[in-house]
């Protein structure tokens, strides 16, 4: 039995490595931020032991304002609902972070490792807002959707969480089984602007 484990991200089959070398131009850039650690966190934000526990474990304040996110060098926390957050950490760290959270939080809470279940697509470039407008009904004006905001919304015929990382770059949190649909959809929607794959 071989000891080499062949790890495959949800868009492994799209072969971004090869595409990156042939797609150099385009108004839209796409990158799979693959194989990161994804943890789903549930808890009562009114409970100090929960809030403090998360803060202690991650060194990050739990975002309590709806649709916001906070990040430091090691982790990003996105608000998903009043009692649900998504924590993104470096790939391979998820088990350790889960343990740390369990060790630091008391009371009622839940952590689920969902690292295999989703991936992050980073879409950027001068025309990426138009692609987003084709895909979802949310208002992408900076006034309504400032940098750092996170929204859960319908995306084409699927759904996603969208986080704005700069004026013209966004992260999409995509479920593994829908990743191919997103890939097909983004190719179609960005065709007129040119799509560039980056690594």
């Amino acid at each position: 039995m071989s000891n080499i484990v062949n790890v495959q991200s949800p868009l492994y089959h799209a072969d971004f490595e090869s595409l990156a070398s042939v797609t150099k131009e385009g108004g839209v850039s796409l990158r799979e931020a693959k194989l990161l650690g994804h943890l789903n966190l549930r808890g009562n934000s009114d409970s100090p032991e929960f809030k403090n526990g998360v803060e202690k474990a991650l060194g990050l304040t739990l975002p309590l304002t709806p649709c916001t996110s906070l990040q430091n060098d090691d982790a990003t926390i996105m608000w998903l609902s009043p009692d649900e957050w998504l924590i993104i950490v470096e790939g391979g760290q998820e088990a350790t972070v889960e343990e740390t959270l369990r060790a630091n939080i008391t009371g009622h809470f839940a952590v689920s490792d969902i690292s295999g279940g989703q991936t992050i697509l980073e879409i950027s470039g001068p025309d990426c807002i138009k692609v987003m407008q084709k895909s979802t009904g949310y208002d992408f004006h900076l006034k309504q959707f400032p940098v750092g905001k996170v929204i859960g919304t319908a995306f084409a015929k699927s759904s996603t969480y969208i986080r704005r990382t700069s004026y013209d770059s966004f992260q999409l949190v995509v479920r593994r089984s829908f990743a191919d649909y997103f890939w097909l959809w983004l190719q179609q929607s960005s065709k007129e602007y040119g799509l560039r794959i980056t690594l």
Binding site: F109, D113, I114, S177
Partner: peptide, 29 residues
């Protein structure tokens, strides 16, 4: 009730081995 639900459908890949020899296969792994 103190309970939370999270979907982990996509997180797990599931393969079922079934039949009289399934244990023999599993034992090798």
């Amino acid at each position: 009730l103190e309970v939370y639900f999270s979907t982990v459908t996509d997180h797990w890949s599931t393969m079922t081995i079934s039949g009289p020899n399934s244990r023999k296969v599993l034992e090798k792994l």
